[in-house]
Design a protein around this nucleic acid. Structure first.
Lengths: 109, 109
DNA sequence: CGTGTAAGGAATTCTGACACG
DNA sequence: CGTGTAAGGAATTCTGACACG
C-alpha cells in the first residue's frame, strides 16, 4: 500500500495540461474552482495541481454545462451524490455488524 | 478499455513536479534523458511531460546512481531487463499455443 | 562523467478587474 | 451567470555553454 494505488488521486497535473486533457479553457477551470466544484492542491508558490480524478470530474462538469446545467446545480447534485455514497457505506458497515453478531466475528484483513 | 487503465503511463507531469516527486534536480532529470534513460513526451511548445511510470523509473535510477552505478550501466541493465521480459512473453505465448493444440482451442475473452 | 550555474528568451500561471449579457 | 481578455508580475521551462573534476 505505497503510493502505487494513488495514481488516480495524486495531484500532479498543472492547469495547462488539464486544459488540454479536458478541452476546457484555463479560465473555465479556475471558475469552477471558484464555484466550489473542484479542489486542486497548490504548489509551494501557488500553482494549481490536479489529479486524474479531478480531470474526470471536470469532464463530467463540462458535459453537464453543455446540457445547460448551472454550476450551482452541479454542486448541489454532487453533494447529494456524496451523501448517498456516505449512506451506502454506513449501511454496509452496519449490515456487516449484524452478520458478525449472528455468525460470529471474523477479523477482516 | 478507455483511458481508465492509463493513469500510470499517461504523460502529464511537468519536470518541476517530477523533481519534487523524485528529489532529483531538474538538471539531473534532463541529463538522464540525454543519456537515454528516460523518454518524456513533449507539449506543443516543447515542455517535457512525464508519467507516474517515468517517476518510478527515475526513483530507480536515483537509487542506482547513489550506489555509484554509471548511467551507461543503468541503460545496459535496463535493456537486458526489457529483453528478458520480451522473452518471457514470447515463451508464454508459445506455451499457450501448445496447450491449445493439445486440448483444443478455446477463444480467450 | 555527472551536475551546478548564469544567460536570454519564450511560455505559463497567478490575481483582480472590466466587459458582455 | 459564465466566460473572454488585457495587465503586470513572478515562476517555469528550454537550450547551449562553461565550470569542475
Amino acid at each position: 500500500m505505497a503510493d502505487e494505488s494513488s495514481y488516480k488521486t495524486k495531484k500532479v497535473i498543472t492547469i495547462g495540461i488539464v486544459s488540454e486533457l479536458t478541452g476546457l479553457s484555463v479560465r473555465q477551470i479556475r471558475y469552477y474552482e471558484e464555484r466550489k466544484l473542484i479542489f486542486p492542491d497548490r504548489t509551494e508558490r501557488g500553482s494549481r495541481k490536479y489529479s486524474f480524478e479531478d480531470v474526470e470530474r471536470l469532464m463530467d462538469i463540462a458535459a453537464k454545462r453543455e446540457e445547460g446545467v448551472q454550476t450551482h446545480e452541479i454542486r448541489q447534485d454532487y453533494l447529494r451524490e456524496l451523501r448517498k455514497e456516505e449512506y451506502r457505506k454506513v449501511r454496509q458497515t452496519m449490515l456487516r455488524g449484524q452478520i458478525n453478531a449472528q455468525f460470529g466475528i471474523r477479523k477482516e484483513k
